[in-house]
């Protein structure tokens, strides 16, 4: 019993140690050259450009729902629609825009990286890199890290814009707001600092995604089962971490309004 517990503790300790050393080496190698600009740009196109259709489609629907829900609540509390734009924009800019985007990118890019690195691991490509004197973490992680941080920031700005625009269209159509009065009502609640904060959040989430993906990808065990497990673990760990970080960041930012 005690022995089993001890063994489990050693295992957990080993994992924490592995993860921490990955973090340290990620931090160190991301600040020292070479930066491999071309590879980073390729990855950036994968993260931002190729994810854009999926992300923008999803946030548009989320924006439409947000307007409908906000109007439902305002009718109950203040018996009219005057606060709808404000509340909807608040929810979109501070939460939905960045979190929905980040979670979608997690499942597309994060899972993709984990599957890719996992396949490299089990086909001994990672060993081959080491034999060539290339540090696998630096080689695999650094371009993806920069691309993911930058890509998610860009995506978040665009997603927020599209979201607000769709929200404006929907409220024009269902609540009879003109775009001018919508923007006026919105300005009472949100400002440029909200967009800034959401971009900061996006940067943090963007860093989380490749770190977990490559951590789980490099620990991938052989066979189809191993790749599946690595991919799933990466997605789950990233999503949970994003939600928790989102809470912490929202809490911190709330002191700056």
């Amino acid at each position: 019993m005690v022995e089993a517990l001890g063994r489990k503790l050693i295992l957990v300790g080993q994992e924490v140690h592995d993860f921490a050393s990955l973090l340290v080496s990620a931090f160190w190698s991301s600040l020292t050259p070479p930066f491999r600009l071309r590879e980073t740009l390729q990855q950036l196109s994968f993260v931002a450009w190729e994810s854009a259709p999926v992300v923008l489609l999803s946030v548009s629907f989320a924006a439409a729902v947000t307007i409908m829900e906000a109007s439902f609540h305002m009718k109950i509390v203040v018996q009219n629609d005057s606060l709808v734009p404000g509340f909807a924009a608040l929810l979109i800019l501070r939460e939905l825009g960045v979190v929905v985007t980040a979670l979608l990118v997690t499942s597309r890019v994060g899972a993709g990286y984990a599957a890719e690195v996992g396949s490299m691991q089990i086909t001994e490509q990672v060993e081959a890199l080491k034999m060539l004197g290339i540090h696998p973490i630096r080689y695999l992680l650094v371009p993806r890290l920069y691309a993911s941080i930058l890509g998610l920031m860009i995506l978040t700005v665009v997603a927020n814009m599209v979201c607000i625009y769709v929200a404006m269209l929907v409220s024009q159509w269902s609540l009879g707001y003109s775009s001018g009065s919508f923007l006026m009502a919105m300005r009472a609640f949100v400002g440029l600092q909200d967009l800034l904060f959401s971009v900061i959040k996006a940067g943090v989430f963007g860093a989380v995604i490749p770190i977990y993906s490559i951590f789980f990808g490099l620990r991938c065990r052989a066979g189809a089962e191993g790749v599946g497990l690595a991919t799933t673990s990466a997605v789950v760990a990233t999503s949970v971490t994003i939600i928790i970080l989102d809470f912490i960041l929202s809490y911190i930012f709330s002191f700056f309004y």
């Binding site: 489609l57 999803s58 629907f61 499942s107 899972a111 599957a115 189809a224 790749v227 599946g228």
Partner: peptide, 24 residues
Amino acid sequence: ARGVGRAVVNTAVATMVAIVIADW
């Protein structure tokens, strides 16, 4: 193994998009 990885990625993305649309 590569195909399983691809299936997992596609599942996660397709599910999320479908859920947002179902939400609306």
